[in-house]
Structures are given as C-alpha cells and as structure tokens.
Amino acid sequence: MRILRSTKVVVGLSLLAFFVLLAVVGPFVAPHAPDWQANTTSGVPQPPSSHFWFGTTQKQEDVFSQVLAGGRDTLLISLLAGLIASALSILIGVSAGYFGGVVDEVLSVLSNIFLALPGLLILMVVMKPLPPQDTSNPFLIGGVIALTAWAWGARVLRAQTLSLRNQDYVESARVIGERSPRVIVFEILPNLLPILASSFIFTVIYGIGAYVSLTWLGVIGVPSGVVTWGTMLNVSQASGSLISGWWWWYVPPALCVAGVGIALALLNFGIDEIVNPRLTSARTGRGSGVKFRLGLTPVLQSAPTKGDAK
C-alpha cells in the first residue's frame, strides 16, 4: 500500500498501535489492580524497584499498573470525541459549502459562534456541576468535547467543498442527472478524505488534551477506583510530587500522553506528505548529496556519452 511507504506514517502507526494495545490489554496484564495498595502504613511513595517498576504512589498503589490501566478511558473518550466531531463537521461543513445561499449563511453563523467559544472554559462550566457517575460516561464526555471541537473542521471542509463544487466532474455529474445527495456523497466526499483524516486526527489530539486537562484540573471527577492518566497527574500534583521530587509518579503518565500525541501528529504529517507529494524529502534532495538551490540548477556532468541506446 502506498500509505505504508512513508516512514512518518509507519512510525506513527506503530507508536499508536502500541498505545492502543496498552489501553486495551493493559488492565489485564497489569500485575495489580490500580487501586491495590501494597500496605497502608507508609505515606511516602516508593521509587522504582524490582517489585514496582514505576514505583508507588503515596497510597502505595503500583504506578505501573495505574499507567497500564489509565490509557483506556483517555483513548476511548478522545476517539469518541473525534468521531462525533467529524460527523458534525461533515454534516455542517459540506452542506454549507455545497448548497450555498441561505443554508450556507445560517450554518456559517453557527460554526462561527462555536469557533469563538472558548472550548476548555465551556467544558469546565458544563462538567463541574455534573455528578461523577455522569462524568465517567465516555459518550457524554466525548460528546461534550466534540461540541467544542467540530467547528474548526466544519470551516475547513466548507472551504474545500466550495472549491471542489466547481470542479468539472461535479458539473458533469449534474449534467448526467445525478441528484444532489448522490453528488455530495459519491463525488465530493471521496475527494475530501485526506482533509477529513487530518481533521479527525487533529480532533483526537485535541480530545486527549482536553480530557487530560480536565481530569488534571479536577474538573471531571472519576468514580473511586478508576484511574486515568489525567487523574494520576491530578493526584500526584496535589500530593506535592513536584516539590518532593517523586518523578516516577507523574513522568510516566505525562510521557504516555505525549507519546500518543506524537504518534497522531506523525500520522498526520505522513498523510499530508502522501496527499501532497511535494512535501516529501525526496524532492528536496535531502540525503542524495545534491544541493538544490533556487536559481542555480546543479550540474553533475555524469551523463553517459552520446549515442547510448536506452
């Protein structure tokens, strides 16, 4: 497959696969339950040792197990947020771009309003009063995060639809007699896939950021016993890890969040390169030993002499 030829995509996908595997399988292979306590006497987190690879928390819970268990909710919620936001942005953005006129005006006003709203603040305001049972419902949280994220994708899709709408093949489809819904779904949408993919990945990254931030800030409570990377950061900070130097408590979850973000970003760059081949390194000459300078075409004098048959 052409997609796998890009190193960025391969690295990004592998990294992402690793974390997804972690999230799915983690809780089962973890040596302990995330809220299991080694003992209840000590109040000081233990550094990494052969018993506890990532050390323990203040309550003597195994950090390693917590990291393994903490990915599931994070990834699930951001994935949901990405899916719901993408669905919304397709519906609104493509309709606005294709139909134009009043439809476009109304939908654009709608997207502009949502764009202007400060996402994180809204999320905090909406989520804070909710009881912990609701806030652990991934669909609800994913949905609310999606509501603050769809508008950007909708603008981008609208712009792209506007330019695609004037393509000759859209005109040809109408000349044959295709109806509008068919034209949108079968002629325009397939050509929007690269942008859609990119927008989806962006939204997932945003979703991770939003969810981790919200749990870190303590806006979203979780039912007792449930651990996510965000709550680990929350608890470790509240317990004074930064001051006391208990790095094994907050560094692993932070690295995991960063790791997923990097994986997704690499995937995004890789898709960009495939869609726009000019961005690839091969064309800029890196690594081939030849320096390309604008206005000074390189001369190699390596051609075989005249008369060579091909």
Partner: peptide
C-alpha cells in the same frame, strides 16, 4: 530553463 540554470528541483543538469 536548464540553459539559464533556472530549472527547479528536482531538475539536475547531467551533461553538456
């Protein structure tokens, strides 16, 4: 464009 060395990447002059 090659004559005037204005050829863009990845054009390379290889002889002559």
């Amino acid at each position: 464009y090659a004559l005037t060395r204005l050829l863009r990447a990845p054009g390379v002059i290889t002889g002559g």
